[in-house]
Nucleic acid binder design. Structure first.
Length: 596
RNA sequence: GCCUUGGUAGCUCAGUUGGAUAGAGCAACUGCCUUCUAAGCAGUAGGUCAUGGGUUCGAAUCCCGUCCAGGGUACCA
């Protein structure tokens, strides 16, 4: 049983016995004792003063005596101000270590008879440009939260909605037709998604110039934006596309294929994957049908220009457009269709959308719309709303080419990792391919950790010049510690030192105990990460664990220890720490090298 | 304007449902490699938790006001 639960029961018994008092939920506050004080577990006694009618010190003393006498695992106690600090027996901690050491699934809840099916949508790229740093955050969060939910016993379906149609791709298509000169990934040597992205930027350049020209001629900005030749041409392409015009469809297919080939490479590099991919081109008609059904039922209304709207003023939201006056569908239309299809395809208990916080409003509206359309799961959808990645110069803008490109970033990171490794003279014993593989792991470890250690809800700053480091609170620091432990375990094996599970030591040192305690926290951390939808919880835990291990490593001999029992304990401890690091970092999608 | 999120060390970030003296990393300075990986360990310095009130045994955390910043706000996604 977890130590918190044991103590909880003990305090309940104490309160009943001493003060004839039954506490309500959360009245018993159990926390870890501050490091600079004696004890392991601390109980806050302030909430009980009302029933004890005594001073904090006296109350703590009374409860402490009771618990010491009645709870086996409590060795001793002390009271400081209003805090009752309990010291837990050495044997309890050793048992908890053995549990972690022997249990391969330590920290993983087994799936129940009927595990919850959670669908996680993430990535969801538009097919008009390559992935950038913002997408990286999305992909890493989506992948990680999926892994975390799995570890908590859920059945997870990772999904991706590829926004492969719409005005954005028409812009790239038009630009390619007009200024492309038959350029292809093959004849230009440019990765497909990057090539299409170039035309998106090209479009915007011309579009902006046209607007400026029209404004010069005296048009209002709004009119100019709507009358520029480029945008008219792109809109015409969209209409042709929806009318299934052959030439348009062919170009669309060709350019999308270029993009998918490019995305696949990037996804692979990032180590993310999907169980089911939906394409907007296959879902938007379902959405359109739903909107028309809603219109018929009188849930939505039509304006004179034929556009279809939802009036959400009763829900304290706005009027929302669902179909444009020319009949084409918008972003919301396809999301309705996609949701419908997903719930038909899978028996989903929980739907999570990993989408940036700039779309908070969109998902509030989507939930209401689905609800209005009669889907009972509509208002239960969960928008995993994460913050933006900002550059020192501000927000990234694809159209202006002001982005940190995902592929470039990964390549740069690998280069830096290689340079650092060479400077330090590491990896010299490895073959070239092994070394390259390790550089890749370290580079991605640095990048992934950097992004995932931040609270997802918050905006974060990425400074290309100085953000990625390999020392301190970083992925490589954690990987380094893992590799270090592996090295120790290898050396132990070389010396034919075997590990046995009968730990018998007189005492354990303070550092050893700190480490043990940290290890035993892991399962509840995995739980917390799922409840808070936060990979950052795992990242921060791993950092704390590793920091403590390095202190332990610095202060204690392991193989060099002459007392065989102590040496055995330290080997078990080291091995367990390594395995917890690996498990935890795996939940973040970060691999651990054996040497570095 | 309205809605919404945030403001913690020079910089990047932690800080559990309100708890003890607010923590890390980077950058700066100082020590520690003839014994298991120095991508490490230890130390120094750095704070009016934006700001003013309130709630209470106790507030970075909860409530109200103000300032500043990000995001959203009806035919972009």
């Amino acid at each position: 049983m977890k130590i918190e639960n044991i103590i909880q029961k003990g305090v309940e018994a104490a309160l009943a016995e001493l003060y004839d008092f039954t506490p309500v939920a959360n009245q018993i506050q159990i926390q870890n004792t501050r490091k600079d004080l004696d004890g392991d577990i601390t109980i806050v006694v302030f909430p009980f003063l009302r029933v004890s009618k005594k001073s904090p010190e006296q109350t703590g003393e009374e409860i402490g005596i009771f618990i010491q006498q009645n709870v086996d695992v409590v060795n001793s106690f002390n009271v400081i101000k209003g805090f009752l600090n309990l010291e837990i027996t050495k044997n309890y901690w050793i048992d908890s270590l053995l549990d972690a050491y022997t249990n391969e699934n330590f920290g993983i809840s087994s799936e129940g008879e009927n595990p919850n099916t959670v669908m996680v949508e993430y990535s969801s790229p538009n097919t008009n440009k390559p992935l950038h740093l913002g997408h990286i955050r999305n992909n890493l969060l989506g992948f990680s939260i999926s892994e975390i939910l799995k570890a908590n016993g859920n059945k997870v379906v990772k999904t991706n909605i590829v926004n492969d149609r719409g005005i954005h791709i028409c812009k790239s298509m038009y630009a390619w037709q007009k200024w492309g000169n038959g350029k292809t990934p093959e004849n230009s040597g440019i990765k497909g998604d990057h090539l299409v992205g170039e035309f998106y930027v090209e479009f915007d350049k011309h579009y902006k110039a046209e607007i400026a020209e029209l404004v010069e001629k005296g048009l209002s900005k709004e009119d100019a934006e709507n009358q520029a030749p480029s945008i008219l041409a792109a809109r015409e392409l969209l209409l042709k596309w929806e009318a299934k015009d052959d030439e348009t469809l062919n170009l669309w297919k060709t350019m999308n294929t270029w993009v998918y080939d490019g995305f696949e490479i990037t996804y692979k590099k990032l180590g993310v994957d999907f169980d089911k991919i939906y394409y907007e081109s296959e879902t938007y008609l379902v959405g359109k049908k739903e909107v028309l059904r809603g219109l018929k039922k009188g849930i939505f209304y039509q304006k004179d220009d034929n556009s279809v709207w939802a009036d959400l003023t009763n829900e304290k939201l706005d009027q929302k457009i669902l179909l444009r006056s020319d009949g084409t569908s918008v972003y919301m239309t396809q999301d309705i269709g996609t949701a419908k299809m997903r719930f038909e395809d899978y028996s989903i208990n929980e739907m999570i959308y990993v989408v940036g916080n700039e779309q908070n409003y969109h998902f509030q509206v989507l939930a209401v719309l689905l609800d209005k359309l009669g889907y009972k799961w509509g208002k239960d959808l969960y928008h995993f709303s994460y913050g933006m990645v900002e550059l020192p110069s501000g927000k990234m803008k694809s159209r202006e080419g002001k982005v940190v490109d995902a592929d470039d970033l990964v390549e740069d990171m690998i280069k830096v990792a290689r340079n650092v490794a060479n400077e330090l003279g590491k990896l010299e014993s490895l073959s070239d391919s092994e070394a390259a593989e390790t550089h890749r792991m370290i580079a991605l470890g640095a990048l992934k950790y950097f992004i995932l250690k931040v609270d997802p809800k918050k905006n974060m700053l990425f400074n290309p010049e100085e953000s990625i480091d390999f020392n301190g609170n970083t992925g490589p620091f954690i990987q380094y510690t893992y590799a270090r432990i592996q090295s120790v375990l290898r050396k132990a094996a070389e010396k034919n030192i075997s590990i046995h599970k009968n730990i018998s030591v007189e005492t354990i040192s303070a550092k050893e105990k700190d480490l043990l305690k940290r290890v035993s926290l892991y399962p509840s951390i995995v739980n917390e990460a799922a409840n808070n939808h936060s990979p950052a919880v795992i990242a921060n835990y791993c950092f704390e664990l590793v920091k403590e291990y390095n202190q332990f490593y610095h202060d204690h001999y392991i193989i060099g220890e002459t007392d065989e029992e102590i040496r055995n304990l330290r080997l078990i401890l080291s091995s367990t720490v390594a395995s917890v690091i690996k498990k935890g970092m795996n939940l973040l999608g970060i691999e651990m090298p054996e040497r570095m």
